[in-house]
Design a protein around this nucleic acid. Structure first.
Lengths: 377, 377
DNA sequence: AGCGTTTCCGTAAGCGCTTCCCTGTGCAGC
DNA sequence: GCTGCACAGGGAAGCGCTTACGGAAACGCT
């Protein structure tokens, strides 16, 4: 008689999972009452209420989200879409993969901000990435539209036209993108932040040359930041560099690569390197150290974002703090009002940012109290 | 007569979004045929097929996920739940918040691994965090169960009993947790990894004392790692320290705090500090530098996980590489087989890890003037 | 007591899909 | 020309819930 699992036929749901009918039966009421109790509507009599709740408790009932969504026309889900560097986890070159992957750090924090804000309204996040080489991410994103009440698009997921088309079907908010007639864009104040930072290094420190190590070429944030640095350099009448040779792709490996090539080709290193984000600044600093350059004594380096490790490295990183989580939260909140049927007040919301002066620009001596910097070298 | 929107009563969906009926009408077929075409079932005639696809294209139709899920009993969604340090984004102390938040780095990478694997099967991730102070996360998690086909639980979300209760209703996989009779646990080989690492610093380098800077007290990973270090220390007959004074809470700030107190209280610093993860190791190293200690010359420090920044800091961090993304992918794959109705082969899957020797243990001279491979070893 | 209100709750109609079942058509075989 | 069969595709049921509607019960008032 020991015949466990002889050949049970690949079933979906062996247990026909309990429904609201089961609860109704157990409680001796109608399904309508169960629903009302569960949703706190139209205050049922306390006694009925108790009966239902007891039945729910006893059976361990959890209402099916799909059925609720279908019926109430609200899924309580918003999708978040971002671009991911590589298609496969099992990429051949794991090292390379990791390096690319770390450019996602910023997004992770952003997503967390969205998530926390969403929880407050009882919404959950449907997270989805599209491959950076995906030709038409439109299809994938459309599928998500079917699973959610609204969509938050990170940088560079869809073209402005794609965004418009999507936004006709479902509320859309973009992060660090560009606003369209149908979607709202949320962004940090790149111009003010980068200008302040550039003015600080050029003005306060008086360095005599500067470069912008760029992020992804098609990222609006990147373009704007680079332009800001250039403009400040011109205002100061100082030499400025950027372009294809200065493409750090937002990653530590990318930043290091730029420096490596620079040195190998014997080109001069500018006195200041303004990086598009913190990750690439980390790579730059590390590579400079490797080659025997001192930061900030020989070269000053700055970042952007103020990710948490920025203050835990030596030299600690001078950067521009973006209210990352707040950006995410605001994205959700905006989307939420759109889902509720209101039309958003503005097409774009710009959040203030703030220069954070640490050591890598030359502001603070590295090892404050004691022995000379044992860190760097 | 200019009475635009006199007082339209807060509608949900002004546009009664198109349905499969609209497509059917446009294509001149029945909804059954549309459904069949869309799902590739029972090969309809090419001509019909084209008509339908053209209609879909023309209208920009996207099937409603909730309706599909309700009908087909498959949501194509898995939930991922993790603990989040603080409740509110707008926490008063932003600095503090960030520090806590960076302990989430590991999870983000893990989640990415899950996500990529899920995409391969057409599944999406429903991301949800529970507050670390939440008393009974069971309710929140139960709600998620209603929205998904399976659940992946990070470290310390539910008690083993809670996991069992949940796993009776829906497939559950835990990450770095403990296996139960109904759920599967996926974990890196903490014991082997930590033992190898400890043997390396104690054996190969011959250091004479060691401490374990712990992570969260109730994290299984943390407990096991600490135990491994202790055992190796005992095998070598060397002094070992851990305990409440050595609680780094997995964060850079936590690691720094431990060192700060240690120094302020004038207690001796062990020759080696094995940290529970990379983040806290970063904090430790930074604080040691601040106080004038050299790493690895005065104190050797190691991490765990091999997050990407580990090789972009100076000194680069000796650590144990976990196949983080692979862990996540495996979690999904396992969950997927469970959702498909198969029972998992094992209650627990342990993935191999690997010691990565860099500078912070004393292995490599810091400023390598060389050009070549800055990578692993 | 009689009537109008209000409250509570059951009935049933969907929500937008998938899929079973069955009809209608075209075609091969006799 | 008739029967039998394969197959494309339509009708309709049903997934598990919310909610409009309306009946019954309970209450307040004259």
């Amino acid at each position: 008689m020991t015949d466990e699992e002889i050949h049970l036929p690949h079933v979906r749901k062996p247990v026909p999972s309990l429904t609201i009918y089961d609860v109704a039966r157990t409680a001796g009421v109608s399904i309508a009452s169960v629903s009302r109790v569960l949703n706190g509507h139209s205050t049922p009599r306390p006694e009925t209420r108790d009966r239902v709740l007891r039945a729910v408790q006893e059976l361990g009932f959890v209402p099916d989200g799909a059925a609720r969504a279908l019926s109430s026309r609200l899924k309580e889900v918003v999708s978040v879409v971002f671009r991911r560097p590589r298609a496969e986890t099992q990429a051949a070159d794991a090292e390379e993969f990791d390096d690319e992957a770390d450019s996602l750090f910023f997004m992770d924090v952003l997503n967390r901000g969205i998530e926390v804000a969403a929880q407050l309204e009882g919404f959950d996040l449907l997270l989805s990435s599209v491959d950076v080489h995906e030709h038409s991410p439109g299809g994938k994103v459309a599928k998500l539209a079917g699973k959610s009440d609204g969509i938050i698009l990170h940088d560079r997921v869809l073209t402005p036209n794609g965004v418009i088309r999507l936004a006709d079907r479902i509320p859309v908010v973009t992060l660090a993108g560009t606003p369209t007639r149908a979607s709202v864009n949320i962004v940090g104040d790149n111009v003010a932040g980068m200008r302040d930072l550039a003015k600080h290094v050029l003005g306060d420190h008086g360095y005599d040359s500067i470069a912008y190590l760029s992020g992804h070429g098609d990222s609006p944030d990147n373009l704007i930041r680079g332009k800001a640095v250039r403009e400040v350099a011109e205002e100061f009448g100082l030499p400025f560099e950027d372009g294809p040779n200065w493409s750090g792709e937002y990653s530590a490996a990318g930043g290091a690569r730029v420096i490596r090539r620079l040195i190998e080709e014997g080109r001069p290193i500018p006195r200041v390197i303004c990086c598009a984000n913190d990750q690439s600044a980390l790579g730059v600093i590390n590579e400079l150290h490797r080659r025997g350059y001192r930061v900030p004594d020989d070269v000053a380096v700055t970042g952007f974002d103020d990710i948490s490790v920025a203050r835990h490295v030596s030299p600690s990183l001078t950067t521009v703090r973006q209210p990352i989580e707040r950006l995410g939260a605001l994205a959700f909140e905006t989307l939420y009002t759109m889902i509720s049927g209101e039309r958003p007040a503005e097409r774009q919301i710009v959040l203030p940012v703030q220069v954070v002066q640490r050591s890598s620009c030359g502001c603070r001596p590295e090892t404050a109290p004691a022995v000379g910097a044992p860190s760097v070298r």
